[in-house]
Structures are given as structure tokens and as C-alpha cells.
Write a protein that binds this DNA or RNA. Sequence first.
DNA 1: GATGAATGAGGTTTCATTCAT
DNA 2: TATGAATGAAACCTCATTCAT
Lengths: 219, 219, 219, 219
Amino acid sequence: MATADPASSASLRAVDGRVPGQRGRATRQRLLASTSELLESTAYRDLKVVDIARAAGTSPATFYQYFPDIEAALLALAHDLADTGGRELRDLVEQGEWSPPHAYTTAQRVAEGYLALWEQHRALIGVIDLATLEGDSRFRELRTELLSGASDALQRTIVGAVDAGWLPSDTDPRALSGVLVSMLAHVAAHRRGMSGHGMDATHLRDALARILAWSVAAV
Amino acid sequence: MATADPASSASLRAVDGRVPGQRGRATRQRLLASTSELLESTAYRDLKVVDIARAAGTSPATFYQYFPDIEAALLALAHDLADTGGRELRDLVEQGEWSPPHAYTTAQRVAEGYLALWEQHRALIGVIDLATLEGDSRFRELRTELLSGASDALQRTIVGAVDAGWLPSDTDPRALSGVLVSMLAHVAAHRRGMSGHGMDATHLRDALARILAWSVAAV
Amino acid sequence: MATADPASSASLRAVDGRVPGQRGRATRQRLLASTSELLESTAYRDLKVVDIARAAGTSPATFYQYFPDIEAALLALAHDLADTGGRELRDLVEQGEWSPPHAYTTAQRVAEGYLALWEQHRALIGVIDLATLEGDSRFRELRTELLSGASDALQRTIVGAVDAGWLPSDTDPRALSGVLVSMLAHVAAHRRGMSGHGMDATHLRDALARILAWSVAAV
Amino acid sequence: MATADPASSASLRAVDGRVPGQRGRATRQRLLASTSELLESTAYRDLKVVDIARAAGTSPATFYQYFPDIEAALLALAHDLADTGGRELRDLVEQGEWSPPHAYTTAQRVAEGYLALWEQHRALIGVIDLATLEGDSRFRELRTELLSGASDALQRTIVGAVDAGWLPSDTDPRALSGVLVSMLAHVAAHRRGMSGHGMDATHLRDALARILAWSVAAV
DNA sequence: GATGAATGAGGTTTCATTCAT
DNA sequence: TATGAATGAAACCTCATTCAT
């Protein structure tokens, strides 16, 4: 999943201007890992620098050597996720076969991909969503980056479907793809809550796939 | 649900067991109002008891006379919203005419209703979502209450549509309605972010309505 | 020395807007007293909120209830000093008899007054001087207030002396009075260092008085 | 005093005992220069080792190779100033002509010298004064060194003037010279604050010169 | 009912300082 | 010689929370 050189998620050193060397980069990585890990078990607003540092086997002071605050660390994590995850989702849409006979299977794969990605990064995505809702533009851009790859690919697919006559000509590809991605993202985010209501992952996946295939290929 | 008496959103006095009189209820209301107001301009995790109290023209000590903590106040607000908003959304679906010729117009009204409700209570709904995502069951139940009325009504409508032969017989009404409500809620929540991308409220409403009508009445 | 009502040196409550009541004012006073006391034995830059609070028999949190930071407390002290001390010094000059036969005695009293005031408030005056030198205008104004009463009085006296023919007509009263006050303030501030060099307080007082009398009354 | 070799203000290496070579001395010089520079724009108590080091293009660790702490660097700077400045001021007094016809002109030069020196080293002199006031004997000695040359020279001049009959025989040369130097130093230090009050540099210089000439040569 | 006042508790942040390289 | 990196230690400052009035 992307060879991502160690400095991909790095801006420069915070405290002073120096670019960190190998040891420093490793520390930074450990801090990011701890942040990510802690986020799984802790509410965003309960994340503490002390805890992150301890979990990374270092001291708060060291944390501040690499990040001005927790938000910055989250931003770095979000950046990585937007890159990796965004590409992954886009590929699922783009490399799938959407012609009527295969559309439903492809749609299943896409739905599955969303569910899986959210499953794996639930907490971080939650932070991104929250910050976006609160108006933070840096996070909003990352969120857009995460979703837009698939959305654009979907839009192109829809345009193709319209041209092929599978979809009515008054279809609005941009709006439709946007709404579909919203649906995928939201269901993926709230899957747990829904599961409680008699819909397990497979059920959800198929329901999503049906709407998706239907909307994109009228199948 | 809820006899709508003035104390509907009230539990009893916290500190002592006394039931608040008129003056007390007024204070409580002011505190709730301030909380709601502050929430518009402040991130959840930045809400402070002092600020709420001061905004309500009273003191922190007084806040604690009515709520054990900020979460409790938010819960009270969420409770009211779930009641009012839930009924409102359910009515929109239930009282609409979903037979093919009218389905699209009804769908537009429903979509509009979601967008409007979220517009008006963005911040509070954000808190509800966040808490739900973080696993808080009290908020999850309120969230369900907010969404389930419309979801159930939609489900019944879909069942009717299947029976009427408008929708294929292998349709899964529960999953489909769930997904559709997800879509509505998510788009409503992120409308602003989407508006930035060339989709204004009307556009979004129509795109939503199309999918909705299509899914429910094959129109 | 000025009955100074208890709120003379008070701005309003810091944390919230409320005006402190009697108990609060007392606490505030204790904090100021501790600050002043500690300043005697501690360098300005080594003053800590914790220490001040402890010395006042309260907690740091309480300190912040009354002052945003240490500087604010010092400013309050300086304000009081400027008021009280400024009036005192002015009176010494103004109420003295500067006609030739008495000028020297009056000058002695003035010099003595400076030495005494600085002796009693050495540390605080040091802070005022330092802040002034560093360009802080709030402190500079207070410093001016402390010195200008006497300076102005002196200036008027000099004008009178010129008119009376005791001083040459090309005397510049403003500059002369300014310089004389500088001399008094500086010697008062550094008296200890000078004492080390064979000049005790009496010696200094007389040396100052001589220059003073000479400059003001040509005696 | 001081053979003015390049290492005059240097003690030996701190960390190890090694005597610094040329490169080392250059680094040390850069650190001193940065300290001096930063002092212009920063309050003493806000000087940080990190900032000094970074400003010198090196690291904190390197700073500690040459100075045990910031105070040591300031002491080194003060030492240089006391040497250079002290000699300069003394020469002004000593090499001037104080006989009645020339006294005023000489006095003007002396006053000008003080104003200029303080103008150029305001911040450092401020530190020296502060430390002196706070009882630090190392700084007090340097301060004395800075001022005593001129003071002693003045004292000798006064003695001469008494002998010549220009001044009354009961004059106390030591006290008088001390007070005069105080006046010069203080006005020089606070010149800016005074300028605000309608006294520009020239005005001040002349007012100082008048008192000086008058006190030393009865002119 | 309401609230001045006080504070324990705890996280944040900053630095001086050290060491291994 | 120089310096990345790390951190102990200490202040700072903020809040939720509690009483006594």
C-alpha cells in the first residue's frame, strides 16, 4: 500500500527549523503510531499529549519537538490516510467493470471497500469528519481528497452510462455521484449502529451495492 | 411520545431532590438556550461550564444545580430535537403521496426537510453523531429516534411499492430504507462542504429526490 | 498617607466580570502584599505565581482569579506607589521654603525623602525602572507620575528663583528640574552601591542637598 | 587594563579544559554578538539559550561549550563594555580643559559622551544596572569600573578647582563627583522617556553640561 | 434559588541541559 | 568542534466542582 518514503507525512521540524535525521524520523513515526492507536480507544477530546508521548515511549517534551499540538499529529495521520485511502477507493471504482452484466458485482466490491476502510480507520475518519463539520478547512480538504477520487471516477462512469443509454439523459452525473459517495461514507461510518438493527455487514453491503448498481448502470 | 409538558426535557433537580419551581425552570431553560447558542460558535470540546453559565447570565454553581455536566445539558437538547425533529421528518414521509405520479414531488419535500432540519441544528446534530460514533448509547438512541420515524415510514412505503409491483420483489425494504435515510442525513450534514463543489442546495435537493423517488417508487 | 479605599488599586475581576466583594478584595490585597514582600527577596524574573500564592496562603488558581499574570499584580502595586509616593515627594518640594536662607535645609529634607522612599520600595521601583527602560508604556507612565509631581514643583520653584534674580535669566527651568530629579532618583536607587565607596546616607544626603540648593536657589 | 587581545573577554572553554582554537573563538564571538543583538529586542528575562544559539547559526549544545549560562555571556559582554566604555568616559573628563573659560564646552562633550554611550548600549547597561540593583557583585564591579574612571577624574578636577579657589573649601569632592556621575548616568539611561517630555537630546546635553560646569568650575 | 470564592487536579508548554555521535 | 535528539523539571494556566452564605 504505497511505499511512502518515511518523510512523506513530514513537514519540517517544528521547534527549530532543522530537518530531522533518521533517528528523529523514527521518533516522529512512533508518535504518530501512538496517536493513531490511542485514538481507537479514546475520544478525540480526551487525547492528551502526555498519553501519546508515554505510549510512544518518550516524553511530552519530545512530542512538542515534532508537533505543535495534537491536531498537527492528527493532520499528519489524516494526510496519509487521504493519500492512501483515497487512491484505494478510486481504484475500486475505476478499475471495476460497470457494464450491466458486471455492475452489481463491481458495486459490491466498492461497497465492501468502503466498509473495510472505515472499519480500519473509524476513529481517524471520525476526527476528520468532526473537524470538517466544525469548519476546519485543512481537514475538509483532506476529506475531499479522500472521497473525491472515487466520486470523480463514479461521475465519469455515470457519464458513460448516460452516453450508452443505460441512464436517462437528464441525469445529473455530478450530483448523483456526490450523493452516492455520501451514502457510502455515511453507511460505512454508522455501520455498527445499523448492525444493531438487524443489518449485518453483508446485508448492508448488498443494499448499498444494489442502489449503486441501479444508480450507475440501471441494473 | 412525550406529553410535551414544559418539563419534558427536564429530569429533576440534581443537587437536592427538589422539583424546580417556575423561576428554576426559567433558569434551566436559559442554560439550555445558552448551551445551544454557544454550540453554534464553539467546538464541542471547547464548551466550558463557565462560558455557558456566563452566557446565561448566571454562575457556574447554578449550572450544577440543574445539570451534572455539560453532556447532560446536551443530552437534554438532543432529547428535544429527537422528539420534535423525528416527528417532523416522519410526517414528511408518512403524509406524502408516494404513488408514481407524485413520488418525485414528495421526495423533494422530504429532501428539503432534511436539509432544513440539519441547517438549523447543525452543531447539535454534530454532537449527537460524534457521541454515537464514540459509542455513547444514550446519544445513539436519540439519534435512532431522530431518524427511525422517517426510516420506518419509508420502509412501509417501500413494502407497499413492492406489493404494488412498482419495485422488484427481491427488494430488501429494511436495508433500502436505512441506506436512503443515511444518504439524506449525510448529505444534509455535509451540504456546506458540497456546496463548495458546484452543488447548491437546490441541486442537492433534486439529486436526493431523484434517488429517493427512484428507489421508493421506481420513478 | 491617603486613606485609600480598599478598591483604589482594583480594576475589576479578571476571570469573569464580577466585581469582587469584601472577601475577594481581602484576598486580592493579600496577594498584592505577598507579591510586594517576595519582591524584596527575589529577582523580578524569579517571581513565580506559585510562590506568591503560597505566601498569601492560597492557591495559584486563586491568583489568576484576580490577576492575569504577575505583571498585572506589579502594575497594581506600582500604581499605588505612584499615587502615594508621587504625592509625598511633591509635597516635600512644594511645602518647603526655598528662599536663600532656608533652601539648604529644605533641600536636605527633599533628598532625605527620596532616599527614604527608595529605601522602602527599592525592589518595586527597580521593576518600574526596568520595565520603563524596556519600553513598557504603562510602567513608564507610572514612573512619570511618581517623579513628575516633584519635578513640576521644582520647576515652579526655579522659575520663581529666576524671577527673584537668584538664578541667571537664561536658566532652563524644565531641563534643570528634570535633571535634578534624575539625580535624586538615581542616587537614591544606587545608594547602597555608593555607600560601599565611603559615602554613607548622611553624606549622600548632604551632597545631594548642596547641589539641589545651589541649583535652585544659588545657595 | 586588559591587553586587548582577542580573547580578553574569554575565560577558557567550559565543558572540557581545552583552550579554543581559532574556529572556536569565532563561534564564541558569534554567540556573544547574537546575545548582544537579541538583547536589543528582547527583555533580559526573555532571553533564551535556544534563541541565542539559533541566531548565531549554531545549536544550544554549542552555546554550553562556551558559556555555563546566559548570565556568563552577558558578563563577558559587560566586561568588554566596562573596559572600553569606562576608558572612553574617563578620557573625556581627563583630557578636557576645566578651567573656567573652557569648562562649559568640556562639560558638553562629557554629557554628549554619556548620552552616546548609553544610546549605543542601552540594553546591556540596563542589564548591568538591574543585576547591580539586585545585588550581584560581579556586575556591580563592572558597573563601578564603567563609571569610576570618569568619577575619579572628576573628583581630581574638583579638588583642583577647590584648590584654585573656584569652589568653596567645604566642598566634598568625592560625594559631589559621585552625584554628578549619577546624574549623567541616569539621564543618559532615561533620555528617551524624557525626550517625550519636550526635552530633546541637545536640550538635555546642555542642561547636564550647565550643572556639570557649574558644579566643577562654578561657571 | 443563586452565587461569590476558592481550589484540587491535571494537562500544556517551555527550557535549560546533557550526551552520544 | 559541533550538534541532533531527548528529557527532567518546573511553571503556567485552566476548569470542573464544591461550599458557605
